[in-house]
Computed example of a mutant assay.
Amino acid sequence: MTARIANISIHAEDPAALANFWAAVMGYPTWVSWPEDELAELRTAGMSDEEIAERAEAWDGNPNHQRFYFTRYNRERRQRNRMHIDVTPFEDRRASRLELETERDRLVALGASLEKELVGSWGPYEEYAIMMRDPEGNEFCLQ
């Protein structure tokens, strides 16, 4: 048996809004709500609409694609992210700097902010990434 990542879980002040940001980043459908059958089960279990709205997801339903899961978190962030997500605009190849800059501009238009560009090398390999933050300040890199 081997492990796999089930979800990328992110604490959020506004789970639905952050789900929609990441859905747009990943090309997933816009988050609207949980499926009607799940909503019925949650309500039958005694959950209010407010409690149900404390969670959201960004996913296209494809088990081969990563699911992002958001849960309301109202506590103060005390430190920098110890782990972050790296995203790339292509599945099958490395993006050029121009392609990364174009994707950076798209993500900024969606609500991301630019933190800094990371330029360096690892042995003979050029390393170039763009450190960004989602609308709630979570770090991620575009590479």
Results as ranks from 00 to 15, higher is better:
residue 136 E to Q: 10
residue 53 A to G: 12
residue 64 N to E: 14
residue 93 R to A: 08
residue 53 A to F: 11
residue 123 G to N: 14
residue 90 F to P: 00
residue 31 W to I: 00
residue 115 E to Q: 13
residue 43 R to Q: 14
residue 83 M to T: 14
residue 83 M to L: 14
residue 89 P to G: 06
residue 103 E to W: 00
residue 130 I to A: 00
residue 86 D to F: 05
residue 136 E to G: 02
residue 91 E to F: 12
residue 64 N to L: 10
residue 105 D to L: 12
residue 143 Q to S: 13
residue 117 E to N: 12
residue 69 Y to C: 04
residue 47 M to F: 13
residue 140 F to H: 01
residue 41 E to N: 11
residue 128 Y to G: 00
residue 86 D to E: 11
residue 26 M to E: 09
residue 10 I to E: 01
residue 16 A to N: 08
residue 31 W to S: 01
residue 58 A to Y: 03
residue 114 L to A: 02
residue 14 D to V: 08
residue 46 G to Y: 10
residue 83 M to H: 12
residue 135 P to I: 06
residue 104 R to E: 13
residue 3 A to S: 11
residue 91 E to D: 15
residue 114 L to K: 05
residue 42 L to S: 05
residue 114 L to E: 03
residue 20 N to D: 13
residue 20 N to R: 05
residue 49 D to F: 07
residue 92 D to A: 07
residue 41 E to H: 09
residue 122 W to G: 07
residue 99 E to C: 03
residue 80 R to L: 13
residue 67 R to A: 06
residue 13 E to G: 15
residue 102 T to I: 04
residue 50 E to M: 05
residue 55 R to W: 05
residue 130 I to S: 00
residue 108 V to C: 03
residue 49 D to A: 14
residue 134 D to G: 04
residue 19 A to D: 03
residue 107 L to V: 02
residue 64 N to C: 06
residue 129 A to M: 06
residue 23 A to I: 06
residue 26 M to A: 14
residue 44 T to F: 06
residue 35 P to R: 02
residue 46 G to V: 11
residue 80 R to M: 12
residue 108 V to A: 02
residue 27 G to W: 12
residue 78 R to M: 10
residue 27 G to Q: 11
residue 7 N to E: 12
residue 37 D to H: 13
